[in-house]
Amino acid sequence: MINGLLNGVRRLGHRVVDMLWRMGVSTRFFLLLLLHSGQCFRRFHLIIREVFSTGVLSLIIILVSGLFVGMVLGLQGYETLQTYGSEEALGILVALSLVRELGPVVAALLFASRAGSAITAEIGLMKATEQLAAMEMMAVNPIARVVAPRFWGGVISMPLLAALFSAMGILGGWLVGVVLIGVDEGSFWSQMRAAVDFKEDILNGVIKSFVFGVAVTTIALFEGYDAPPTAEGVSRATTRTVVTSSLAILGLDFILTAFMFSGV
């Protein structure tokens, strides 16, 4: 009985120590990444290439998802607002939901599963096939040459993808609300324009998606860099990227929302 309890405490202790150790290593990794970022800004084509592979190649899933989310918002919003006779406010509901919350959060979740997992798998496989070790042996720092451009590529892409997601969502809301259901188009757009504030809503949404971009890309890069160099190790790291990034996005969203919109 006592032995079982002691073993349980010991296992818990090991887990806590492991977790703290991993946090320390990932923080060191993040700082090294920032330290070696100067070189990739001098060779900006490396970042542009990563913006293409993380951003441009994620466009289809982002645009299609944005459109459907907006269409669902249009339908659900109309149903609710109709009860109170204020269906003209559909434009406000769709725009604020997307710009403040759904745009940054859903785009980041999609980004984590599309681009984040790809980054982890790529870096993990580069490690498993000794490409990173080969780079080290050629006196080229893999953090400066491989990791930093991918980080900045992801950080630049994320706010742009979130903005496109929101724009497509608003288009979807308009399609359903105005074109299909027949909400007054003038009210839809004018109420939206009057209610959405640039600094309060749009800028805060951009800040959110920037923070999510930093979090997702750092997690994806660290998991890939830290993955055991085996097929199983890379597959587990890829799964961990998606799970950890998703939880980080939701947790950070709550904290950021509390600071931005609650007057805390």
Partner: peptide
Amino acid sequence: RRRMGMLFQFGALFTDMSVLDNVAFQLREH
């Protein structure tokens, strides 16, 4: 290491670069 080369067991070529770019890699970097 700029005066040192290493051949890894399975080559460790950069899979996202062509053969020519692989060979030119160090020349471009250094």
